[in-house]
């Protein structure tokens, strides 16, 4: 079995906030594993410790306790960074450089040859839609443009692992879609992606596994499909809002709801046929029957509520 792309074991990190003051705990006890080839989402409310976790991964801050690995190398080993791309939370770039010069500068740190850089720079600028503005210095960029630049520079070395702290922050819907497509393309090429995000719908469409953190602890982790599936439950959707159907289905179903001209019935999977027969008897038209699945938002809110306080 291949080693995970990222591991963190029982990371604890606190910050000193003043000379005599108590240390502020940012990450209490956080563990995670990211399988190679996955798109992994680190989720959590504001201040949960996502950025701190990423800083620990990159060796920008040092954990008080715990350890981890990046691409098979222990944390802090610069070798791993050669195959790593990183998008910071905010555009912390040299803003006196043009996008083009910025890419060249950051590319040099990967030891990329001048020729290769000259070829890759325009490609990346095209990819993120900045070709037109590549001669403008970054301080004249809008927020979304800076984010696009950030994504371009994170891909300079054709990394095996891309770590992105809120990749779609500041992007317009088109930009968000473009980023999603870029990430999916990367996954197709076998790359691993580690992202933190608040865009739950986005995470739901692209991530294969997630970890939810709250107050510095991992509170839920796993494959997204497993986490969202409500085991043994099926949701059947019928056309129409017949009140008679409500009465007939309630004894069979766990939950029946009528709205927007539809009747939504959640049943235990082994009684699906009984529910269907009942509905058939009433002449109802079925739209779909699928395994019941929470939305990521539901899961997230539920998890955070459960673990609050």
């Amino acid at each position: 079995m291949e080693k995970p792309a990222v591991t963190l074991n029982n990371i604890k990190k606190s910050y000193r906030t003043g000379l005599r003051m108590k240390r502020k705990v940012a990450v209490e006890d956080l563990s995670l594993d990211v399988t190679r080839g996955d798109i992994f989402g680190l989720l959590g409310p504001n201040g949960a410790g996502k950025t701190t976790t990423i800083k620990v991964l990159l060796g920008i801050v040092f954990p008080d306790e715990g350890n981890g690995s990046l691409l098979g190398c222990p944390l802090g080993d610069r070798k791993a960074h050669e195959r790593l791309g990183f998008l910071p939370e905010q555009p912390y770039f040299y803003n006196f450089l043009t996008a083009e010069k910025g890419l060249v500068l950051y590319g040099k740190f990967f030891g990329l040859e001048h020729r290769l850089l000259a070829k890759r720079t325009p490609e990346l600028l095209d990819l993120v839609g900045l070709r037109q503005d590549s001669h403008l210095t970054l301080d004249k960029y809008s927020k979304g443009m800076l984010q696009r630049f950030g994504i371009a520079q994170a891909l300079l070395n054709d990394p095996d692992l891309v770590i992105m702290d809120e990749p779609s922050s500041g992007l317009d819907p088109l930009g968000q879609k473009e980023v999603r497509d870029i990430l999916l393309q990367l996954r197709e090429r076998g790359k691993t992606i580690f992202l933190s995000s608040h865009q739950l719908s986005e995470v739901e469409t692209i991530c294969s596994s997630v970890s939810i953190v709250n107050m510095g602890r991992t509170v839920k982790q796993g494959r997204l499909d497993d986490l969202l599936a409500v085991r043994g439950m099926t949701r059947i959707i019928f056309k129409g809002e017949d009140p008679a159907a409500l009465d007939a289905l309630i004894p069979v179903a766990s939950d029946v709801e009528q709205s927007d001209g539809r009747t939504v019935v959640d049943v235990e999977t082994d009684v699906t046929f009984r529910a269907l027969e009942t509905a058939h008897g009433l002449g109802m038209e079925m739209i779909s029957a699928t395994p019941l699945r929470l939305s990521l938002e539901e899961l997230f809110l539920e998890t955070i509520r459960e673990t609050a306080g």
């Binding site: 960074h81 990183f86 040299y94 740190f109 990967f110």
Partner: peptide, 14 residues
């Protein structure tokens, strides 16, 4: 302060 150092140290720069 400007945190430009993050992006430098995320590269293979010790």
């Amino acid at each position: 302060e400007r945190r430009t150092i993050y992006n430098i140290l995320s590269k293979p720069v010790s």
